[in-house]
């Protein structure tokens, strides 16, 4: 527990010292502006529900790209800046490193994504009439948070499996595109693979609640609502297990 605390402290100090946190806030703010402007550009008859749906979709589908610079660099930077010595000195194992990063970044970005969603919903109260029920709003908020854990876990897993920075970011982009291709070829299967695409079950549920467009083709029922929430968490857990078991982060520590 002590080592875990040390590592989380180490990660937060890294974000602050390298000023990465400022750039990440920049990512969130620009994404917020994009999600505000985006629906206005295409539809003049938009309402509160639709704008919230757009915000949720933008966060789920684009956040991954914004985080590439940090999360795909996660294990490579240890090698580059020789953080290994610090880990050896504090008797920290590889499992500790992977676990602490999963915990820290999942909490950090889920919170930031959730806050961004809440902030946008507050901003829009002044612009549109509120026409969404509390439970629908809460559902969308939880969906955004859980989908963010999927994206973050996927990126940490890629970073742990392919330690090189260019390779891991390239691989993430490849996966992003491949999900899009699978959705095009087998839409029923593709919808349940990842929330990153506009054809996903998450996108379908958001569309059902908010009334914005989606490419999800299966019918939305109560199970879809449940699956949309559960699938990202299950996938995130699988990604965690894969990272612990198959990470290539072995040199210099053990």
């Amino acid at each position: 527990m002590n080592r875990l605390k040390k590592l989380i402290w180490f990660e937060s100090m890294f974000l602050i010292k390298t000023k990465t946190i400022i750039y990440l806030l920049g990512v969130f703010i620009t994404m917020l502006v994009l999600s505000i402007v985006f629906p206005m550009n295409f539809n003049s008859d938009i309402d509160y529900k639709m704008v919230l749906g757009s915000v949720a979709s933008v966060i789920i589908q684009f956040l991954g790209i914004g985080l590439i610079g940090l999360l795909c660099n996660l294990f490579y930077r240890d090698k580059k800046f020789s953080y290994h010595y610090w880990f050896i000195k504090h008797k920290i194992t590889i499992t500790d490193i992977v676990r602490s990063r999963f915990i820290f970044y999942n909490i950090l970005f889920s919170l930031l994504a959730g806050l961004m969603f809440i902030a946008s919903s507050i901003i829009f109260i002044f612009m549109y009439e509120v026409n969404i029920s509390f439970y629908s709003y809460l559902y969308m908020l939880v969906l955004v948070i859980l989908s963010t854990t999927y994206v973050v876990s996927l990126m940490i897993m890629i970073s742990a499996l392919v330690v090189d920075f260019v390779s891991s970011s390239g691989l993430f982009i490849l996966i992003w595109f491949t999900i899009g291709i699978i959705n095009g070829v087998t839409p029923y299967l593709g919808g349940y693979l990842s929330p990153l695409d506009a054809s996903s079950v998450q996108s379908g549920v958001i569309s059902e609640i908010s009334g914005i467009g989606s490419n999800f083709i299966a019918e939305i029922d109560i199970y879809s609502y449940l699956l949309a929430l559960l699938l990202p968490v299950i996938y995130a857990f699988v990604f965690y297990l894969i990272s612990i078991k198959f990470n290539k982060y072995k040199r210099g520590i053990n």
């Binding site: 390298t18 000023k19 990465t20 750039y23 990440l24 920049g26 990512v27 620009t30 994404m31 502006v33 994009l34 402007v37 550009n41 790209i65 914004g66 985080l67 590439i68 610079g69 940090l70 795909c72 660099n73 930077r77 920075f165 970011s169």
Partner: peptide, 22 residues
């Protein structure tokens, strides 16, 4: 100074340019 930040910045610039195109 950091290549990771360069990618983050590229993404921010990409979004800003897309917004300004409107």
């Amino acid at each position: 100074k950091n290549s990771g930040i360069c990618i983050i910045l590229s993404f921010v610039v990409w979004i800003i340019l897309n917004i300004s195109s409107m």
